[in-house]
């Protein structure tokens, strides 16, 4: 299998992390919602995936030949909305009316929204659906790829490990599991709640081609994904991304209260200011 060539052109200014974080903050403030920290930890991962790897023929979120991004950790959905805004799939009205009565976008991933592939939030579901999509694409013999983002807390769920066995057994080298290893779950640190041990070793032992990466270093993420697709013929891929929950806004970083805390006028302004938006990213 040949490595997937990155799609980026030097002029592509879309998916700038700071601007996407601003979208998340705007939505969270407009809708008075939670899960900001969960969205912030996957921003750079999504930047690289959308800018460099995910193929949507004719910019159509439902195009038959597309790659699939399965957000199994549905709690990060605002980050995906931010990407969809960059793509023009969502507009300002979607952002401003987030959580208003009758609005379309929910607080967790809902597959009836074009651009979201699975309904998740109940954890441990999306990855299995992604494994099924990968199996279907494999049977069709296409070169489409499936990326499934799971939280490290989500790895507590049994079906993740069932799916990992199946993916390796069926040699699904069109599937990449990306672990958002931000070290926290709802009620505390993953080490305190249910220690995960050495994730790279775990997935390697399941038969995955595995790499660890700094989940906020765009160049490193891009290179790691490239390398995973290039190596390990016949093996599913696992990218363990070390991330920071709440990344990008210092007072939210690794403060698990931002799993559940809502913004007020002051914290919203302070957070926007902390993003340091300038020039092209504005």
């Amino acid at each position: 299998m040949t490595a997937l060539a990155p799609l980026r052109t030097e002029t592509d200014q879309r998916f700038a992390p700071a601007r996407m974080r601003r979208t998340v903050l705007e939505m969270a403030y407009a809708g008075s919602t939670v899960h900001i920290g969960c969205a912030f930890s996957i921003i750079e991962l999504l930047t690289v995936l959308y800018r460099n790897y995910l193929r949507y023929p004719e910019n159509n979120p439902l195009a038959e030949g597309r790659d699939y991004l399965v957000l199994s950790k549905g709690h990060g959905v605002m980050a995906q909305y931010a990407c969809m805004r960059e793509l023009g799939w969502l507009n300002d009205s979607h952002i401003q009316n987030y959580f208003k009565d009758g609005s379309e976008l929910k607080g967790l991933s809902d597959s009836r929204v074009a651009g979201l592939e699975v309904t998740s939030g109940s954890l441990g579901h999306g990855f299995s659906v992604g494994v099924g999509i990968a199996m279907g694409l494999q049977r069709k013999g296409t070169d489409q790829k499936v990326y499934a983002i799971v939280g490290d807390g989500e790895l507590n769920e049994g079906p993740i490990w069932e799916g990992a066995l199946v993916a390796a057994h069926h040699r699904m080298d069109n599937l990449m599991l990306i672990v958002d290893k931000n070290g926290f779950q709802a009620m505390g640190s993953t080490d305190d709640v249910l220690a995960l041990g050495d994730l790279s070793a775990k997935f390697a032992s399941f038969g995955f081609e595995t790499l660890e990466v700094d989940g906020h270093d765009e160049a490193a993420i891009e290179a790691a994904i490239h390398q995973l697709w290039a190596n390990g013929l016949g093996k599913p891929k696992a990218l363990i991304a070390r991330t920071v929950k709440g990344k990008g806004v210092p007072f939210m970083e690794s403060d698990n209260r931002w799993h559940y805390t809502r913004l007020n006028a002051q914290t919203f302004a302070k957070a926007i200011n902390a993003l340091g938006l300038t020039g092209a990213t504005k």
Partner: peptide, 22 residues
């Protein structure tokens, strides 16, 4: 397809297969 003794993943996987036309 014998999906193994892993029913939860099997049903999720069936959803994925249906999503791509099976």
């Amino acid at each position: 397809i014998n999906a193994g003794i892993a029913e939860q993943n099997m049903v999720g996987m069936a959803a994925g297969l249906a999503r791509v036309g099976f």
